[in-house]
Structures are given as C-alpha cells and as structure tokens.
Design a protein around this nucleic acid. Structure first.
Length: 448
RNA sequence: GGCGCGAUGGCGGAGAGGCUACGCAGCGGCCUGCAAAGCCGUGUACGCCGGUUCGAGUCCGGCUCGCGCCUCCA
C-alpha cells in the first residue's frame, strides 16, 4: 500500500518515502499548558493519532513525539493573574490535557517531552546558531538573523520584504533586521529563568521544538505536523533554526497541517459563547462522538464544529453499536478499503464511508471486518452497555433496579393487554431520558 | 495591502473530464398493540460569469462570498 500525504513544503500530494523504512519518525507540536485545550487544539491530536496508527500498521517501527510546552509567557501571565504557582498550573493543565485526549481515543505519543527538561539543549542550539553566524546577541537577547538564511520563507512562502511590509508591531531596537526573531530573552526576578551564557533568561517560543525534535528524532526526520496556524511563524522559524544549527537541507521531509476549525458557523471566541473546551464537551457528550465529528471531515478542510454535529455523530455510533451487538470480535485484518482510504492523504471521511458500507452487510464476516476497521480508527472502544448507558456529567443517577422493576411491570401489563398502563410506564421512563426497545427477546433500555 | 485556503443536494461530507459516493433528515412501505430499533424503496447538488473540450462539480480566466496567517503573539 502506497502512502501519499500532502506536503505543505511543496503544496502538493506526494508519495511518502521515509528516510529509513525501518524507523519512521514524526513530530507534532503539542499544547502550551496554561489553559484547557479547546476543540481546535484537539483536531491535530486526533488527526495525527490516526496517522501514527496508520504508520505503525505500514512500518515496523514508529517514533511519535509530541511536546508539552511548559515555558511560555502566557503561562507566566496566567500565574501572575491567578497567583497559582507556575509549576502547579502546568502540571495540572498537562494532566487534564492527557486525560481529555485519551477520552477522545487518542493514544499517547511515544515520547512527550517538556520544555523545562530541555533548556540545556535549547541553549546548546542557540550557541550553535551564534557560531554558525545565524544568530547574534544584542541587549541581553539572542536573535536569529533572518537575512543570514537565503531560503527563509520556504515553508510559508512569505518573503522577508512582505513580512516587514505587513508587520503590525513596532520593531524592537535591538534587531539588526526587522524580520529577526528571538531565540533567548532575559528574565526579570519575577519571571522564570535559567542561567545561560547570556545571563539569566528564558527561551523564545520556537527554539523548544527545534531542540526537542533534534534530541529525540535527530537532525532530520520524516513528518512534522500541526495546525495550519503554525505554518507561520512557528514552523517557518523552527525550520530555519534547525537547518542552520544542524547544517541540513531540511528539518522534516514532510510538513503536514490541518485546517482551521470554526464553532457554530463562527470563529471560536469566548465572547460569542461558542468557545468549546474539550473538557466541557466531554461532560456533555461521549468522547467517541467528538472523535467521529473530527474524523468525518478531511483534515485539510475547514471544519465547522457544532453540538448538533456531535449529536448526529452520536446517533451514527448508536447505529454502529447496534449493528455490532457486542458478540463479535474484530477480524485480524484491517479492511483494505480503510487502509487505502487512509493511505490517500488520510482520507478519513472516505474510511468512514467504508465503515457504513460494511454495516450494510449483516454477515458475521462483515461485522468482524467493520469492528476491525472502526477500532483501527479509534472508534467502537466501549462495551455495549457502557455506550448506551453513558450519561452526561451531573445527570441524575438511574436506579437500574427500579428501571428493571418498571420494565417487568410493563411486560405484565402488555401480556394482559393493558396498553394504557404499558404506555404510561414507557412515557414515565422517557421523561427520565430512558428509551425502551421491545424485541422478541424482551425489552431493553438505553439512555436517549 | 501581502500570502494562502474554502464554496457540492434540507444538513453533514467524499469524489473528480463521460460512470450510484456515503451518512443524517424527509417521504412511501414492511415489522410493531402503538412506538423505538431494524429492513426495503425514493427525490433533490456541484457559488456566479466566461473559456477549453465531442463532453466540465471535475481543466483555464475573471468575479462574489466566507475564512486563516502577516514574528518576539493578543
């Protein structure tokens, strides 16, 4: 099976040709842990989780690195505002992030490095950039000198002149060139800092990824991923730093970026009330339904995320859980249709259509294939009862014994043709969000 | 202003120069005491204007609308 992926570097779909077929290496930019992840942050996590699963299926060894950024001025600002210790904020937020992503069915990456553990590597890389003539120290800062790299802008396709023309902020006086960006900056006594050859300070906001990727994946690796909004400046600057420090022609062979996400037809913003954190959504919907919404749209397409969309995805999963009534086990082989769809630049909507196609055939063979395919995509992970009896956070507890007693009473009433009482019981339960289903085998219930 | 992305049937969403996408919802039917679930059947589409072609959602040009990014982040 040939894997092809869209490479942002060339803006075309290309056949994936790893540096070493024995060991595929991928780096994805992870969260800055100062606040709960919103659904836009979850999109790359789920997308690259699918890619990691696919790579592991196609290649013998895969190393997937996704960092946690725990040094950032937004974190410092959050700490100043709330008074909470920086370490406490980052630990707490990182834990919630990991739990929330697990609830979305995303497997943990192989390595999840933190910036605070890699400051030494960042300092080393910064020193390398100074000695190679690509960076300079000025006024306590170390700056990357953009004109020192001829190919700067190759990823985002911004020319240096355009950047300067479009700049929205004043140029700091210590910059040699308006396009230069920071590698290291000084910290005052109230700000976290590390000792360095340039005094006590902290890293700029791109060098972390360059340093951590180099540490775990080497000077050059296969895939670098993230959201489209990271193309510039983050990835452009990472690319420049890594190439110049490591003396390579590229950092990653393939750069992949997922499209942006809107919520309820508008850009997500707190003031519009459509700002969804994954943590809050998980109180309201099962994680698998959220995952399915994310996979139903191709990763490079814009996605309008709506609660109605999650509800619809949940109904689709209801249907799938019914189709696979809990008695099947997944076949060993992942259906070809799933693998070939995913191998075509991660065409998850097409893979999902393939799942729908398999549900049209009620044979045991098809059910086993369906289950294998769905589970490969990180879906159909629940027990049947857990899925149908899932309830939102804060919902009233259901006393199953009471429900069973009412069902028994209703069955009696139906046998006695007392349909008035029978329907009354059904309505009563429906009011509590319980839906009854009669079949030849008796009556079962689920949460509606 | 610069760079880039998107526009498909009521909704979601693939595909791609000639061939059914698919799902949801709707409608008709079967089943059911009635429902629910399930099953069968069924309608509707490619933003606008030109062009290329025997033939264009699919290629080219222009336009309209929506959106992203434009550095030490907000």
């Amino acid at each position: 099976m040939t894997l092809s992926i869209h490479n942002t570097l060339h803006r075309t779909k290309e056949v994936f040709d790893p540096i070493s077929a024995d060991h595929v290496r991928m780096y994805v930019c992870g969260p800055t842990v100062y606040d709960y992840a919103h659904i836009g942050n979850a999109r790359p996590v789920v997308i690259f989780d699918v890619l990691a699963r696919l790579l592991r299926h196609l290649y013998p060894k895969v190393t997937y690195v996704r960092n946690i950024t725990d040094i950032d001025d937004k974190i410092n600002a959050a700490s100043r505002e709330s008074g909470e210790d920086i370490r406490a904020i980052t630990e707490r937020t990182a834990k919630v992030f990991q739990d929330d992503m697990a609830a979305l069915g995303a497997l943990p990456p192989d390595i999840e490095p933190r910036c605070t553990d890699h400051v030494t590597q960042m300092i080393t890389m910064t020193e390398q950039l100074i000695s190679s003539g690509n960076a300079y120290e000025a006024d306590g800062h170390v700056m990357f000198h953009v004109p020192s790299m001829a190919e700067y802008g190759q990823l985002s396709r911004h020319s240096r002149d355009e950047l300067i023309a479009g700049a929205r902020i004043d140029v700091a006086p210590y910059k040699k060139d308006p396009a230069d960006f920071v590698l290291w900056k000084p910290s005052d006594d109230l700000t976290p800092g590390w000792e360095s050859p340039w005094g006590r300070g902290r890293p700029g906001w791109h060098i972390e990824c360059s340093a951590m990727a180099q540490t775990y994946l080497g000077d050059e690796f296969d895939i670098h991923g993230g959201g489209q909004d990271l193309i510039f400046p983050h990835h452009e600057n990472e690319l420049a730093q890594s190439r110049c420090a490591n003396h390579t022609n590229g950092m990653a062979r393939y750069w992949m970026h997922n499209g942006y996400l809107m919520a309820e037809g508008e850009k997500m913003s707190k003031s519009l009330g459509n700002f969804y954190t994954v943590h809050d959504l998980l109180d309201e919907f099962p994680g698998e339904a959220i995952r399915l919404v994310l996979l139903q749209t191709h990763y490079r397409q814009p996605l309008d995320f709506t609660k109605e969309g999650i509800a619809e995805a949940r109904r689709t999963l209801d249907k799938w859980y019914r189709f696979n009534d809990g008695n099947q086990s997944a076949s060993d082989a992942i259906p070809d249709g799933i693998i070939s769809a995913l191998s075509d630049d991660l065409n998850t909507p097409k893979a999902i259509a393939e799942l729908h196609r398999l549900t049209a055939d009620p044979s045991e063979e098809s059910k086993a294939a369906f289950l294998a395919g769905a589970q490969f995509l990180g879906l159909m992970q629940q027990e049947l009862d857990d899925w149908f009896r899932w309830s939102p956070a804060g919902a009233t507890e259901i006393d199953e014994a009471v429900v069973d007693a009412l069902i028994a009473e209703r069955t009696e009433a139906r046998l006695g043709k007392n349909f008035a009482r029978s329907d009354e019981i059904r309505d009563e339960l429906a009011a509590q969000g319980i839906v009854l289903e009669d079949s030849v085998d008796g009556t079962t219930w689920k949460r509606g």
